[in-house]
């Protein structure tokens, strides 16, 4: 009884927030509703006894994917009036197509039957296993090929993101951390007794560290090719 009630609450909120995702005007709100939808889906998983899937949904979709969504949507400057212009022009066509599809769906679903063999799909719980363990056993034995192929899909996506966006420009100020850490006080620091009342410039100018940023810069990054402009002042010490 209580479980059913909880199910309907989660399901109702899920549907509502899913509807809000596509109907609210502000895209940031849309993403937040999407997150709410994910949460309720996770709740439904929990009720079904699939606690591992529920947690995974929250960690992966809410904790990582939706964060990046939100990240991008917040940075984009979306012009709503412009978006709505197109909507009004194309709305009749869209409504017609949607209506036809919907009618078809109603037709298909109202005569829905299942294959006699399919009705009694065996769905018994694995005895003595938590569902994490049961899932792991299946994924890494029977479905290992598919699992690894999915891994390849992700790898390809990653390669794609790098190939299409990474530009090796010289504007980054990247440093060779090891070199930078290997600098000692002797190389960078010198104590000089400066006479009172004397102009520093007359004393030979400002001192510069003997090894400078240019020595620790990664080749190809900004400034690594340029000669240090301060070298001649250095001799004045």
């Amino acid at each position: 009884m209580l479980a059913q009630l909880v199910f309907y609450v989660f399901a109702a909120v899920l549907l509502l927030s899913a509807a809000m995702v596509i109907s609210v005007r502000n895209p940031v709100h849309a993403v937040l509703f999407l997150i709410l939808a994910f949460f309720n889906a996770a709740g439904l998983f929990l009720i079904a006894g699939a606690e591992f899937l529920a947690m995974l949904l929250v960690i992966v979709y809410v904790g990582a994917v939706a964060v990046l969504f939100l990240f991008v949507v917040m940075m984009l400057d979306i012009d709503f009036t412009q978006l709505r212009e197109g909507l009004q022009r194309h709305a009749p066509i869209g409504i017609c197509v949607g209506g036809v599809l919907f009618a078809e769906l109603i037709m298909a679903l109202s005569h829905w039957t299942m294959a006699p063999a399919g009705v009694s799909v065996p769905l018994q719980a694995a005895p003595g296993l938590t569902n994490t363990a049961a899932l792991g056993t299946l994924i890494y034995t029977h479905y290992v090929l598919l699992f690894q192929a999915c891994g390849l899909v992700l790898l390809v996506a990653m390669i794609g993101a790098i190939v299409l966006t990474l530009r090796q420009t010289g504007s980054g100020r990247r440093q060779n951390i090891e070199k930078q850490h290997a600098r000692t006080p002797e190389e960078t620091l010198v104590l000089v007794r400066v006479p009172l009342g004397e102009n520093v410039l007359e004393q030979g100018g400002f001192l510069r560290p003997q090894t400078s940023y240019y020595d620790t810069a990664v080749p190809g990054s900004y400034g690594s090719t340029g000669q240090p402009a301060v070298e001649k002042e250095e001799t004045g010490a």
């Binding site: 940031v28 995974l56 929250v58």
Partner: peptide, 25 residues
Amino acid sequence: DINVGILYLLAISSLGVYGILIAGW
């Protein structure tokens, strides 16, 4: 005392970012 306790912790801690992100926006 749930079976996926550590995942629960990971999930909750990964949600922490929303408070900050939403506050910032």
